[in-house]
Simulated scan of single mutants.
Amino acid sequence: MKNAYITKISKFLPNSPVENDQIEDKLGFIDGQKSRAKSIILRNNKIKKRYYAIDENGNVTHNNAQLTAAAIEELCDANFSKDQIELLSCGTSTPDQLLPSHAAMVHGELKNGNMEINSASGVCCSGMNALKYGYMAIKVGQVNNAVCTGSEKVSTWTKADFYQEEIEHLKALEENPMIAFDKDFLRWMLSDGSGAMLVENEPKGDTPLKIEWMEGFSYAFEMETCMYAGGEKLENGELKPWSEFAPEDWAKKSVFAIKQDVKLLGENILKKGVDCLKEVYEKHGIGPDDVDYYLPHISSYFFKQGLYDEMKDRGVEMPWEKWFLNLEHVGNVGAASIYLMLEELVASGKLKKGDRILLHVPESARFSYTYAYLTVC
């Protein structure tokens, strides 16, 4: 088996950062009114800046494939061109279309010749799953390099126009024209952007990171759906897909809006995460003492203290000085978040040879978790 190294990391964040008081100017006011939930959610998540692929006039500046291709272009220099990519592996929660696959559309943007492509679906773990596919392809010697990406284009999914027909439908029924909290919640949480990693079979570059191992877990066998789009959650916990709704109901019920069962999230996301973290530690014979930098993808700073407390209560406390987060000034970029965190850590110049990095990515869709353990070469 060969070794796999992350030799370069890049990012692309579209347009200028959007401050908290600018969000509704960008996304629009639902029914012309300010959100009642906005201030509460922003106070808890502590996000101050995020990025949208929308210009000053509300026009789309980039689709998801273009965001991803832009990050990949940032990987390229005199030593590595896009024509040298052997494998392209892309993960996202928000592809531009149902078909073709996201990776196929990114490849179409790159226009760099024939190569293998892979698309990882899902939510936040899709970016890590894209990385794992590239990691495994290099481990078995199928390719010498892989470009792996995580990206999101969520702004158009959360614009006010997306909910307008539902509001009009509620008014026609003489019901309260207010978007449910499970839909409004995520409008103040999510951000656009992309990250890319070049993974190679040799430790090249200024700060190569050896991928020691990657592990994934799913609790879908015992947990109902928590975060979803393209469906509606029923009272019995089952998810009714968009294809089983009449077309006229897609807009009336905002079927394609991103939603989250906030109660289910709060009760389970941390507990399940520490359950499998302990399994990872036991399997690989390591613990918090074997980690120099801990990069957890958290959707909100609301969960930061809770995650620390859960680990402490379960005997795997991670000291605060090992945590590295950038949520406050980048936003929650879903599948791209872990790429953006690692890129910022490498660019900080803090890393030294021998440092050990633990990546921890949860996904609330149906409670999945992915981990990666890296060492600085």
Rank of each mutant, 00 (worst) to 15 (best):
N3K: 15
A4S: 12
T7G: 03
F12T: 01
P14W: 04
V18A: 00
E19Q: 13
I23F: 08
N45P: 01
I47T: 05
K48L: 11
I54V: 11
E56W: 09
E56G: 02
N57P: 04
N59R: 14
H62K: 08
G91K: 00
G91F: 01
Q97E: 15
A103I: 05
A103K: 00
H107Q: 14
G113M: 01
N114D: 11
I117D: 06
I117H: 12
S126M: 07
L131H: 01
M136A: 12
M136Y: 14
V147R: 02
S151T: 14
S155T: 02
T156N: 11
E175I: 10
P177Y: 10
D182E: 15
K183R: 15
S194D: 11
A196L: 12
E200Y: 11
E202G: 07
K204E: 00
D206P: 02
K210G: 02
K210H: 11
E212W: 06
E215W: 04
G216I: 12
G216D: 14
Y219F: 15
A220M: 11
E232V: 15
N236E: 10
P241N: 05
P241L: 04
W242I: 09
K253R: 15
K253P: 03
S254Q: 04
V255Y: 02
K259L: 08
Q260G: 12
D261M: 04
E267A: 14
L270T: 12
G273C: 06
K283E: 11
D290C: 09
V291T: 09
V291S: 04
L295K: 03
P296Y: 02
K304Y: 15
Q305E: 15
G306S: 13
R314G: 13
V316S: 03
E317V: 14
P319Y: 14
L325W: 05
L327G: 06
G334R: 03
G334M: 13
A336V: 12
E343N: 09
E344P: 02
A347W: 10
S348F: 10
G349H: 10
L351A: 07
K352Y: 07
G354S: 02
I357R: 00
P362D: 05
E363C: 08
R366P: 11
A372Y: 01
